[in-house]
Nucleic acid binder design. Structure first.
Lengths: 110, 110
DNA sequence: CCAATTGTCAAGTGGGTACTTAAGTAATTT
DNA sequence: AAATTACTTAAGTACCCACTTGACAATTGG
């Protein structure tokens, strides 16, 4: 019937933190290294690395290390998980409103 | 520092908690009272009330008390805030991919 | 009125987590 | 080889937050 997606918890938890959302905002402009990601945020590099771990485990971000530089990029499927959940809630809500509308439009002399 | 929409923080923080998402899932099926909301969750009524406060402050839920019953309903605009943020990230990401595609397609008889 | 229903408020607790510092590793530059 | 760059890891701290308990309204049904 409806199976539970395990990723959804991690995705929304990851998006719940402002610093992590700032990271995603930056990453949506294109791939970038860890230290350049850290520059605009006023937290230490170590904190950024920790956020990146959370983001990577949630499937929102993908990273790859070549040489001494780790390049981070956004993983579009991650945001889709969140978008789909929101879409699902909206659709059931709208479906209910439709049923309500049908009842009101029904040809009963009440 | 950064001037951002204040609501976004609260909305995503609210959505970050599984119990609160469960509440929203239930509410998307239609308005319901606090105690009936609490039934399927294994937390106390008091905890549900606290979650409802967060949800209401974030603009995701609207409640109204008549008699001794508080009826809760979903506030569609709240979810839109989250959906828009996700949409914005996606569009800047896609815009960038388009520019990349243009560069690759631009000069050449291949 | 009495009692059950339905929710509210306050305070406390335990676990989680965002952040820091500090020390370490590995790749590049000079 | 030495210095610099770019992370990585570990450990500690302080704060936040989800949840509980328990006492307290306020409404409503018998």
């Amino acid at each position: 019937m409806h199976r539970k997606k395990p990723g959804i918890d991690r995705v929304f938890h990851a998006l719940g933190d402002p610093s992590r959302r700032a990271i995603i905002e930056k990453l949506s402009e294109g791939p970038i290294s860890v230290s350049r990601l850290a520059e605009p945020l006023n937290i230490t590099l170590a904190a950024v690395v920790q956020h990146l771990q959370v983001l990577e485990e949630s499937g929102l971000v993908q990273t790859e290390k070549t040489g001494r530089v780790r390049t981070c990029r956004i993983e579009p499927a991650g945001l889709s998980v969140a978008a789909e959940w929101i879409g699902d809630r909206r659709s059931t809500w709208e479906r209910r409103l439709d049923r309500l509308g049908d009842l009101l439009a029904e040809p009963g002399e009440n």
